[in-house]
Design a protein around this nucleic acid. Structure first.
Length: 435
DNA sequence: CGACGGGACGC
DNA sequence: CGACGGGACGC
């Protein structure tokens, strides 16, 4: 055994990479090796023996290089017979040597991972991000109980320990912060081809993070008169991040658009709601005015009436709806490119911008909206208590484009200085990585 | 002028 | 029931 193996096998590193076997006393190191070698790099096999008689005590430890190898071996080998007449073996993840406990490590502890994610992530995003490692039993996001805001943390429960182990191994490689886009095309969000100024009963709802048809329908069904609510899917049945909602009357549609365009759902994610031209002619000035009058009356009725308040309280959407969803987000003279997808932030940060706000910082959601438009935006971070922030990109070009277009410009009345960030300060006493 | 975060649910 | 050995980097 070489030095690195000696150290890692002794300290149980990485976590959950050592197996505890209960076998017949006839099972030898060689037999174990034959059956377990296929699962990965075995660093050590130790059959516990009686000091005097040298007879096996029926207990062995098998140290693998990786937790996923140990977990897969456990899943495959537990209950198997390694020799004629030998009893079926039991296979567990060994308690770490430092823990002192001899209680079995439960599947409960091995199948769930704790993750740090962007605050804009929904449960669906979380599932999308981690389903490559295996079937997910559930994914939950830790939220502030009163506001419903994501704390940027979550849990993902897999069905097998090896799946959870693979997820952890892969994320460790790409460092601390986990994230992914899976944001379907949102290029319709700011109002192009599909949308129009024409008021119709038909609305296009676009979301930058994954949402289900049920979520959107639950939200829009709070306003009476829904005809249908349908997720738009591509030829393979994948969600395009857009839902078409039609009401049986214009007033409800206008009301829904006014109240839910820019509404944060799930928390941190702004929905975009625009009219879709449904083909009916409503372009005459008189018709439009009449329509808006009807709409205004409808809004006032629903919004101020007791039934409206009731509706919001009994929301089935899964969190407490804000009484007045915010509208209008980005106001500026700058000609902004269209919205683009956020990028998986488990890729490398290629460029970082440093932004100074005057007189005060813009909200993070506004900044995401503005800075994603150059491409490959990973994260927006505001330094608490200061008028500055950092913008992370996965490519250089979007960063340079953002500087070119936005430096010195005013967004929502806030003047911004946009420049390349200095590299973060380092622990200089440590030896630099050579790999 | 203007500089580097956040960490545990809910049965 | 079924839980912890052997041997020892290189500045």
């Amino acid at each position: 055994m070489d030095e690195s193996n000696r150290v890692s096998s002794h300290l149980d590193e990485p976590a959950n990479s050592r197996l505890f076997l209960v076998t017949s006393k006839t099972i030898t190191e060689e037999i174990i090796r034959e059956h377990f070698a296929a699962f990965g790099e075995i660093q050590d096999i130790w059959v516990v023996k009686d000091k005097q008689t040298k007879e096996s005590k029926g207990v062995s430890f098998v140290k693998f290089a990786k937790s996923s190898q140990a977990c897969t071996a456990m899943e495959e080998m537990h209950g198997r017979c390694l020799a004629e007449g030998a009893k079926p073996i039991k296979v567990f993840i060994a308690q770490s040597r430092s823990s002192g406990s001899h209680r079995d490590v439960e599947d409960e502890e091995l199948t769930r991972i704790f993750v740090m994610i962007p605050r804009s992530f929904s449960e669906e995003d979380l599932k999308e991000t981690f389903k490559v490692y295996g079937d997910i039993e559930y994914a939950i996001i830790i939220r502030n109980k009163t506001t419903g805001e994501s704390k940027g943390l979550g849990y993902v429960r897999f069905h097998k320990p090896s799946q959870a182990a693979k997820a952890i191994e892969n994320c460790d490689k790409s460092k601390s912060v986990l994230s992914v886009s899976s944001h379907e095309s949102s290029s319709y969000a700011s109002g192009d081809t599909w949308s129009s100024d024409v008021i119709t009963r038909c609305l296009l709802v676009s979301s930058r993070v994954a949402v289900t048809q049920e979520q959107i329908c639950g939200l829009f069904d709070l306003i009476p008169g829904i005809d249908f609510c349908e997720m738009q899917r591509d030829q393979y049945g994948f969600s395009k991040g857009q839902v078409v909602v039609r009401y049986n009357n214009l007033g409800s549609a206008v009301y829904a658009k006014e109240k839910l365009n820019g509404f944060k759902y799930p928390p941190g994610n702004r929905l975009s709601v625009t009219y879709i031209n449904d083909g009916e002619d409503r372009t005459s000035p008189m018709g439009k005015m009449a329509m808006q009058l009807v709409a205004a009356q409808m809004m006032s009725m629903v919004w101020n009436g007791p039934s409206g308040a009731q509706l919001m309280k009994t929301s089935t959407v899964g969190y407490t709806a804000a009484p007045v969803p915010q509208k209008a987000r980005v106001q500026t003279d700058v000609a902004l490119p269209p919205l683009k997808k956020l990028v998986a932030s488990d890729s490398m940060v290629k460029e970082r911008l440093f932004v100074i706000f005057n007189p005060s910082p813009l909200p993070v959601d506004v900044l995401e909206d503005v800075f994603c438009r150059f491409g490959s935006l990973m994260e927006v971070y505001l330094v608490p208590g200061r008028n500055v922030g950092y913008i992370k990109y996965a490519d250089r070009k979007p960063a340079y484009d953002a500087i070119a277009l936005l430096h010195g410009k005013v967004i929502n009345g806030i003047k911004m200085k946009v420049m390349l960030a200095d590299p973060p300060k380092e622990e200089s006493h440590k030896r630099q990585r050579t790999y």
